[in-house]
Write a protein that binds this DNA or RNA. Structure first.
Lengths: 161, 161
DNA sequence: GTTACTCGGACTCATCTTGTCCGAGTAACT
DNA sequence: AGTTACTCGGACAAGATGAGTCCGAGTAAC
């Protein structure tokens, strides 16, 4: 059970993007977080493909959120970066071997897969209940209101303003 | 987000083991499910290391459940086979970069990691709420009571009785 | 029209999971 | 008690997946 490490980067980037209505280049996000810019680009492309952020090319381009932070959930980001597929995949081994269950008797899903998917549903519901806006609020609560403001000024200060 | 495929095998094996109080060889479990015996052995070893099943060596040996099926949860099996570590790992990137949060200011966990771990907790609770006995009951309900009985007779019929 | 900066996809490398093998140990049988 | 055959256990390769890097296409500013 291992989640792609890019999810953490993507979430932090989404929180940072809430501070700027103007596009932010991927290189700047990478510098801010001190991570590989080449690799962070891959995660941002995943977010763009999912429609969570949109890219602006050319000079003074970059990435910006497409929707309001309140309407982007953690589940959206996880699905975009880590893939939407379920963690548990049922290979229907009940239909194999000498005592295989006949295919026509398998009307519903395998009980084992059903239980695993129920647990995954609980996980997804918990992720869907938290938005990027919630995260930004929590960051302000723990690191102080000056944290995100500092990010905002740093983002524009390094550019033209 | 990908779970080890061995989890599915291990769960099916645990359900099968509920039908037999006597040790079942790994090779027989592999034949029953039509999977690689060499690889299934690895999963069973993980279950044994976790104390969920115990091995009996020598002739007419094999694996048997150590506890009652009612006291073995899906979470136990998942932790044993797939590892107990969290799926989301926080690398504390908030403490990196030009605007790094000072270490002494990081009293609590990163809000992002906190949200992810909350979701994982919901997943684990759902897994801990289901036991191997529940799965066996569900299998009987869907495939009919003769399914597990057939497994039991097949297990002993192939041996000596 | 030029320039410089941006994203986008194709490529390579490390890591992990999957899958396999043979040797140590033990209980049954003679 | 000796032999035998069957069991688990850990050490050993191969394929697949993810991590990380690179350069070219496109675009907005100058």
């Amino acid at each position: 059970m291992k989640m792609s490490g890019g999810v953490e980067w993507a979430l932090h980037c989404c929180v940072v993007l809430t501070t700027s209505s103007r596009p932010v280049p991927a290189a700047k996000l990478a510098e801010l977080h001190d991570v590989s810019g080449s690799y962070l680009a891959k995660q941002l492309q995943s977010l763009a493909r999912a429609g969570l952020i949109h890219s602006v090319q050319g000079k003074s381009g970059g990435y910006a959120l497409t929707r309001a932070p309140e309407s982007i959930t953690l589940l959206d980001v996880v699905h975009a970066v880590d893939g939407p597929g379920p963690a548990f995949v049922c290979t229907e081994i009940r239909q194999r071997g000498p005592l295989a269950t006949p295919a026509d008797a398998c009307t519903g899903p395998c009980p084992i897969a059903h239980a695993m998917w129920t647990a995954e549903t609980a996980w997804r519901q918990a992720l869907a209940a938290v938005t990027i806006a919630d995260l930004a609020r929590d960051v302000e609560a723990t690191s102080g209101p000056e944290a995100l403001v500092g990010v905002r000024t740093w983002l524009v200060g390094e550019r033209d303003g």
